[in-house]
């Protein structure tokens, strides 16, 4: 499934870039994320607990920054996570782009999400709703952090 999310953060681009590239800190902005730690080589391990419809998922996995270009304000991330209770996995490629607009920063994330196994049975609308919500919360949290600093 392909999604595009955009959000505006009231902070200059350089500041938002630094925030987003600090993966453990940025990850704390995603509700349900626990214990993100660097495993070296631009890779991170972590857990995301989310409620999708009536089902609670605990996704365990890795996140890697596969490309970054600070000048252009773009980065690519790859995430692979699985839930062993429900059965299924998520593979995601995310392309980040930051653009400064009059002192604010527009954050755009293009995600390509492959949902495998049982998790795929939720159906696209349900997963899309959940992704929208996570992304909204993520952007709001980034904005709060940016203005707090």
């Amino acid at each position: 499934m392909k999604f595009t999310h955009t959000a505006t953060v009231a902070a200059p681009r350089a500041k938002v870039w630094a925030q987003v590239m600090d993966v453990p800190a940025a990850a704390r902005c995603v509700p349900g994320v626990a214990s993100v730690r660097a495993s070296g080589n631009g890779k991170y391990q972590g857990t995301l607990a989310v409620q999708v419809g009536p089902v609670r998922l605990v996704l365990d996995g890795d996140l890697a920054i596969t490309a970054r270009d600070e000048t252009a304000g773009t980065a690519s991330l790859r995430a692979e996570a699985k839930d062993s209770r429900v059965g299924g996995a998520i593979h995601a490629t995310m392309n980040l782009a930051l653009a400064e607009k009059g002192g604010e920063t527009e954050l755009r994330i293009d995600s390509d999400l492959a949902v495998m196994g049982r998790l795929g049975e939720f159906g696209q609308p349900v997963i899309k709703r959940k992704a929208d919500q996570l992304m909204r919360d993520f952007a709001e949290c980034l904005a709060r952090q940016a203005s707090a600093r």
Binding site: M1, A114, V115, M116, G120, E121, G123, Q124
Partner: peptide
């Protein structure tokens, strides 16, 4: 039956 990259994205009568 909607498919994306070979996966059915609406595999229930909810969707």
């Amino acid at each position: 039956l909607r498919l994306e990259d070979g996966r059915v994205t609406n595999p229930s009568f909810a969707d």
